[in-house]
Design a protein around this nucleic acid. Structure first.
Lengths: 181, 181
DNA sequence: GAGGACATGTAATCCGTTACATGATTCA
DNA sequence: TGAATCATGTAACGGATTACATGTCCTC
């Protein structure tokens, strides 16, 4: 049920149409909570039904500009501060790591080295994003940076973990030479 | 489509019934790729339909012991080594962080301090799990440790990030005192 | 007037969760 | 004989993804 709160959070900053929100979900939010057009319009309708948002104005081409209501603000605040976040549950990469025993050690090493490279690439991508973002003075700037920093730290951690894990496998399989980087 | 590969991966190590697999999904795998009983029995039926596993023996109480087939092993190997893992897409915590601008800075600080505590608790939980696990000599031991290490590093990273983020907010809101720990 | 951007909506399908339902075997 | 465990299956519901469908407005 977090898409609902993502939408409320965006509308808490400023009124917007589904189309406006969609652009945000495809750009900055794509790295945090991606959502599709279908989902978004459906969620807006449901939010309006439950009184957490309202149509403020209807514009050309059927444009509906939504505004958060007081009930919506209360719900958002409650969710952020009082609902315990769920842990990240599933990671594709981690599942593969768990199952690496079913391939030969040299292929396990290849996998981990691939993960190290992918983590580096992700890190570079986020660094580029940070550099190209016109960071202003507002809240969005402070919290956007904090969110991005999480991504940088996460990808750095993945890189270091993959290197460490490759070392562990090399140590456990003396016959296998770890390829030099 | 990863539950399918989690099941194949477990059956690659040894034949098992749905009931056996369920216990694994509720213990060690719960930290990596949780799955419910419903899901599991459904997936086993689908895997058998597509010829990736086979019923090896039928035991008492309708027990069906499944075995991976050659086609299943090929599919597993292909998935582990040749299918690019998906990035972790959604994090409840990160979405809240992104939206923290909609609450007062002192509550944003509370949130981040709560995350720091939760990360510490998770870290301790995983340390306890590592200590209480009878690590043997096999593959499961090597790859289980590697997976657990990821969790330890992840929770450590979250803790450090939450502390750093709290510092950023305190700096951006000079009026707000960061509570001492 | 044609093309692109704006703008919303619906349908099909898949995956995951919760709950319901049923029955067999073992052991105290 | 009754409780616990073993064992499998189905149904209902909600969220996410992809694809389909339609129409309007602006600008060149």
């Amino acid at each position: 049920m977090s898409l609902r709160h993502a939408v409320l959070g965006l509308l808490a900053a400023q009124p917007a149409s589904g189309y406006d929100l969609l652009k945000t979900f495809q750009s900055s939010l794509a790295n945090v909570w991606p959502a599709t057009q279908s989902q978004l319009y459906g969620e807006l309708a449901r939010l309006a039904d439950s009184g957490l948002v309202e149509v403020r104005t209807e514009g050309p081409r059927g444009r509906k500009e939504y505004e958060i209501t007081d009930a919506g603000r209360r719900e958002l605040r409650h969710w952020i501060l009082e609902v315990e976040p769920e842990r990240v549950r599933r990671s594709d990469t981690l599942l593969r790591a768990f199952l690496l025993g079913s391939v030969e050690p040299e292929h396990a090493l290849d996998f981990l080295q691939g993960r190290a490279t992918a983590a580096d690439e992700r890190h570079a991508e986020l660094r580029a994003l940070a550099a190209s973002t016109p960071w202003g003075q507002g809240d969005l700037s402070v919290y956007g940076r904090i969110t991005l920093e999480w991504g940088l730290r996460f990808s750095a951690m993945q890189r270091e973990w993959a290197d460490w894990a490759a070392g562990q496998i090399a140590a456990a399989s003396p016959a296998v030479q770890q390829k030099p980087r």
